[in-house]
Amino acid sequence: MAVRATTQTRSGAKSTPPREWQRLKFPESLYNWGGLLLALVFLCYSIIYLNIPLERVSNMFGRVGTLITERYYPPEIDYVLEPDYLSSVFDTIQMAYLGALFGMMMAVPLGWFGAYNMTPSRRFVYPLARLIAMSTRAVHETIWAILFVTILGFGMMAGVLALTMFCIGFAGKLFAEEIEAIDMGQVEALRSTGASELSVMVYAVFPQVRVAFTGIGIYTWDVAFRAATVVGFFGAGGMGWYLKRNVLQIETHRVSAILLSIIVLVLISEAVSAWARARMAKAK
């Protein structure tokens, strides 16, 4: 107060009246609190609408505890070491490998068409490629698995195709984003010499994104492996089938052993993929 008083007397003229400092000013505060209130109302309404028994939430922790200790606790490790199960694990790895490979093969043109700076036609091809990438990714991999099992019957082919569909969208989106971030100078240089679009792609775009594509490829395999552990749940091959069988037979000790094996395998695949990506970044 004192400081302001002296400045006012020194300048003589009356400056703008002092404003009360507020964290939120009038319209913003209304929007913020209103939005929060709406969210809260939606929350309460959805709890009522979904008929969620809140009284069960309180004793849920005890129930989950007893469920784990009494039913799941000693995992039947011998079961996951049986040759049958191990061969299914092997099948799962193969399925993930093939699915990721096929998916990426189709994702490369999709990434090209879906990158805004390189797409052959911004009006028709670009939205189409984006739509394909969005819809293959949006439909969950288990739905793809069920659809392919319905069409092609039980077996690993359905699983491979389901993973392929999933990887197309996943890798296609990342590829397109990678191509959108390239240096356009080389593209212009090649275009000015009259090179065709394909040559521009091969000699100007591809060398720039090769390393990134390989990294995305390894990551796609990692994600596909995680998805591959459950596509068998609906009859598409791999270890998911063992999981489903034991869940239905309420062989809980075996289920917990299978879950443990999935966790270990995912950890291994994550470590391998991190190692390969680091190795490749170094070799670049």
Partner: peptide, 15 residues
């Protein structure tokens, strides 16, 4: 590896 996987998963395991 791709060819080998293709043989075991798709050719052999499909009905």
């Amino acid at each position: 590896v791709a060819i080998w996987c293709f043989k075991t998963t798709i050719i052999d395991d499909t009905d």
